[in-house]
Simulated assay, not measured.
Amino acid sequence: MYPQGRMLHHFRELCVGDYLAVKGPKGRFRYQPGQVRAFGMIAGGSGITPMFQVARAILENPKDMTNVHLIYANVTYEDILLKEELDSLVANYPGRFKVHYVLNQEQRSFIGI
């Protein structure tokens, strides 16, 4: 957790046995294979999880040749979730999947693999 994190103060106030209601994601999204030539995604922190699922579904569908581009922001390198899995998608789908990692604290960015 980060001191400036939006959820930190909520979690800090919880006691053992308390409940926290969570909902989302908001809105609806329907993707049809081949609907677009390229699909752009932006994610930060744990927001990668739905993006990873969508990217994998697109790339693993042999009937879908959509290119996927992901910008994934984190505070530090160690915060990058699913890095091995994302880099594996880059390796397995060269030219079709690109991930650009952006790090806040380390003031740098780099491309997957």
Results as ranks from 00 to 15, higher is better:
residue 90 V to M: 05
residue 70 L to W: 11
residue 69 H to T: 11
residue 100 H to M: 07
residue 38 A to I: 08
residue 52 F to W: 03
residue 93 Y to Q: 03
residue 84 E to C: 07
residue 83 K to N: 03
residue 40 G to F: 15
residue 26 K to Q: 12
residue 96 R to N: 04
residue 28 R to L: 06
residue 90 V to K: 14
residue 107 Q to L: 11
residue 101 Y to K: 10
residue 26 K to M: 13
residue 86 L to I: 13
residue 81 L to W: 01
residue 98 K to F: 00
residue 84 E to R: 14
residue 33 P to L: 01
residue 77 Y to V: 07
residue 104 N to W: 09
residue 86 L to Y: 11
residue 76 T to R: 15
residue 30 R to P: 01
residue 97 F to S: 13
residue 44 G to T: 14
residue 58 I to C: 09
residue 60 E to G: 02
residue 104 N to C: 13
residue 101 Y to M: 02
residue 26 K to A: 14
residue 109 S to T: 09
residue 41 M to D: 04
residue 76 T to A: 11
residue 30 R to C: 12
residue 84 E to N: 14
residue 104 N to Q: 13
residue 79 D to W: 02
residue 86 L to N: 15
residue 109 S to C: 07
residue 92 N to D: 15
residue 81 L to F: 05
residue 88 S to Q: 15
residue 25 P to M: 05
residue 96 R to S: 01
residue 56 R to N: 03
residue 49 T to E: 08
residue 41 M to C: 06
residue 91 A to G: 07
residue 53 Q to D: 11
residue 34 G to C: 08
residue 41 M to S: 10
residue 108 R to P: 02
residue 61 N to D: 13
residue 102 V to D: 08
residue 28 R to M: 10
residue 65 M to V: 06
residue 44 G to L: 03
residue 47 G to A: 04
residue 46 S to M: 04
residue 77 Y to P: 04
residue 64 D to G: 10
residue 98 K to P: 00
residue 79 D to I: 00
residue 99 V to W: 12
residue 105 Q to M: 08
residue 93 Y to S: 07
residue 87 D to A: 09
residue 72 Y to V: 01
residue 28 R to N: 10
residue 57 A to V: 00
residue 107 Q to T: 05
residue 105 Q to S: 13
residue 106 E to C: 02
residue 67 N to L: 01
residue 69 H to D: 08
residue 106 E to R: 05
residue 89 L to H: 06
residue 78 E to G: 09
residue 28 R to Y: 12
residue 38 A to G: 14
residue 75 V to N: 15
residue 56 R to I: 00
residue 45 G to T: 13
residue 68 V to L: 06
residue 59 L to N: 05
residue 80 I to V: 13
residue 73 A to D: 02
residue 73 A to K: 06
residue 62 P to W: 03
residue 58 I to H: 13
residue 69 H to C: 03
residue 28 R to W: 05
residue 51 M to A: 07
residue 47 G to I: 02
residue 26 K to C: 13
residue 29 F to H: 09
residue 72 Y to N: 02
residue 62 P to D: 11
residue 26 K to R: 11
residue 77 Y to D: 15
residue 92 N to T: 09
residue 34 G to T: 12
residue 52 F to Y: 15
residue 48 I to G: 08
residue 79 D to S: 07
residue 98 K to S: 09
residue 62 P to V: 04
residue 91 A to V: 09
residue 105 Q to P: 00
residue 94 P to F: 05
residue 103 L to N: 12
residue 80 I to K: 03
residue 35 Q to V: 03
residue 40 G to L: 12
residue 109 S to Y: 10
residue 95 G to M: 01
residue 109 S to I: 00
residue 54 V to Q: 09
residue 98 K to G: 00
residue 41 M to E: 04
residue 71 I to A: 14
residue 58 I to M: 08
residue 96 R to C: 00
residue 91 A to I: 14
residue 68 V to G: 03
residue 31 Y to R: 04
residue 107 Q to R: 15
residue 83 K to D: 00
residue 25 P to V: 07
